Lab assay of single mutants.
Amino acid sequence: MEQGTVKWFNAEKGFGFIERENGDDVFVHFSAIQGDGFKSLDEGQAVTFDVEEGQRGPQAANVQKA
């Protein structure tokens, strides 16, 4: 798993971006967030995640709040 920081996340649209430790950004969809209840992330929040190849390039999977 990688570690990163939430760059931004739009809860209304259900997606955002995580900044990886290497400085690259990776797309995150709310469906990739682990846990119960409303799935959202806060700007600046530390997270761990896997990276999978999506239809439009790399995207975060198995996102967990650190």
Score class of each variant (00 low, 15 high):
23 G>Y: 09
24 D>G: 12
59 Q>H: 09
30 F>W: 15
50 D>T: 14
31 S>Y: 05
41 L>Q: 02
24 D>W: 11
60 A>E: 00
2 E>Q: 13
15 F>W: 15
62 N>C: 06
27 F>V: 02
51 V>Y: 06
61 A>W: 09
25 D>N: 10
23 G>K: 12
58 P>C: 07
61 A>C: 08
41 L>D: 02
37 G>R: 05
20 R>Y: 07
33 I>R: 01
23 G>E: 09
13 K>V: 08
27 F>C: 03
25 D>F: 11
29 H>V: 04
2 E>F: 15
24 D>V: 14
31 S>G: 05
21 E>F: 12
26 V>S: 02
4 G>Q: 01
46 A>W: 11
22 N>H: 12
17 F>R: 04
34 Q>K: 13
37 G>E: 07
35 G>K: 06
64 Q>M: 12
53 E>L: 13
12 E>S: 14
60 A>V: 03
16 G>F: 01
38 F>D: 08
24 D>Q: 14
3 Q>T: 14
66 A>E: 09
49 F>P: 00
50 D>K: 12
33 I>C: 03
59 Q>C: 07
12 E>Y: 14
66 A>D: 09
30 F>C: 05
16 G>K: 00
47 V>K: 00
28 V>T: 03
14 G>K: 04
21 E>W: 12
60 A>N: 00
41 L>I: 05
46 A>N: 09
56 R>Q: 10
58 P>G: 05
31 S>K: 09
64 Q>F: 10
63 V>R: 00
27 F>Q: 02
17 F>M: 09
29 H>I: 04
21 E>L: 15
11 A>K: 15
19 E>S: 15
30 F>K: 07
42 D>C: 11
55 Q>W: 15
36 D>C: 11
15 F>N: 02
13 K>A: 08
46 A>Y: 11
53 E>C: 10
45 Q>M: 12
38 F>G: 06
37 G>I: 06
43 E>W: 12
18 I>R: 00
21 E>P: 14
25 D>W: 13
55 Q>D: 12
33 I>M: 05
7 K>F: 03
32 A>P: 01
28 V>D: 00
31 S>C: 06
38 F>E: 08
3 Q>Y: 14
19 E>D: 08
32 A>F: 05
17 F>H: 03
33 I>Q: 02
55 Q>I: 14
17 F>N: 02
11 A>V: 12
11 A>F: 10
29 H>W: 05
19 E>M: 15
23 G>A: 11
40 S>N: 08
54 G>H: 08
4 G>R: 01
19 E>G: 14
64 Q>W: 12
4 G>N: 01
17 F>C: 05
9 F>G: 01
32 A>W: 04
55 Q>E: 11
30 F>L: 05
58 P>N: 07
45 Q>R: 05
65 K>C: 08
65 K>G: 08
58 P>D: 05
43 E>L: 13
24 D>P: 15
7 K>V: 05
54 G>T: 13
36 D>L: 11
27 F>M: 03
51 V>R: 04
23 G>I: 05
6 V>Y: 01
24 D>E: 12
8 W>Y: 08
32 A>I: 03
40 S>R: 11
11 A>P: 11
41 L>E: 02
44 G>T: 04
16 G>H: 00
25 D>G: 05
40 S>Y: 14
39 K>Y: 06
13 K>S: 07
57 G>P: 05
63 V>N: 00
39 K>A: 07
26 V>R: 02
40 S>M: 09
53 E>S: 11
58 P>K: 11
61 A>I: 13
7 K>N: 03
6 V>T: 06
35 G>I: 09
36 D>I: 11
29 H>G: 03
35 G>P: 05
36 D>S: 14
48 T>A: 07
62 N>A: 05
52 E>L: 12
2 E>A: 09
15 F>L: 05
8 W>I: 04
48 T>L: 11
36 D>W: 10
2 E>P: 05
46 A>T: 12
39 K>R: 13
9 F>E: 00
59 Q>M: 10
45 Q>Y: 05
58 P>W: 11
52 E>Q: 11
51 V>Q: 04
64 Q>C: 08
42 D>S: 14
6 V>S: 02
2 E>D: 09
21 E>R: 14
25 D>I: 11
10 N>Q: 06
26 V>P: 00
26 V>W: 02
14 G>T: 04
17 F>D: 01
65 K>P: 12
41 L>K: 02
63 V>Q: 00
66 A>S: 13
45 Q>I: 09
34 Q>W: 10
27 F>N: 02
17 F>T: 03
65 K>A: 11
44 G>N: 07
48 T>S: 10
13 K>F: 09
51 V>S: 04
62 N>L: 05
23 G>D: 10
35 G>T: 10
34 Q>L: 13
25 D>M: 13
59 Q>N: 05
57 G>Y: 05
43 E>S: 14
16 G>A: 02
37 G>W: 06
20 R>W: 10
28 V>H: 01
59 Q>I: 09
51 V>G: 02
30 F>M: 06
45 Q>S: 08
37 G>A: 07
54 G>P: 03
26 V>L: 13
47 V>M: 02
13 K>T: 06
59 Q>F: 14
26 V>Y: 04
49 F>K: 00
41 L>T: 03
25 D>Q: 11
37 G>D: 06
65 K>D: 07
59 Q>G: 04
45 Q>C: 08
19 E>W: 15
38 F>W: 15
12 E>V: 14
51 V>H: 04
44 G>K: 08
55 Q>A: 14
58 P>Q: 09
13 K>N: 05
48 T>D: 05
40 S>D: 07
45 Q>A: 09
29 H>A: 04
3 Q>A: 12
58 P>I: 10
48 T>H: 08
44 G>Y: 05
12 E>W: 15
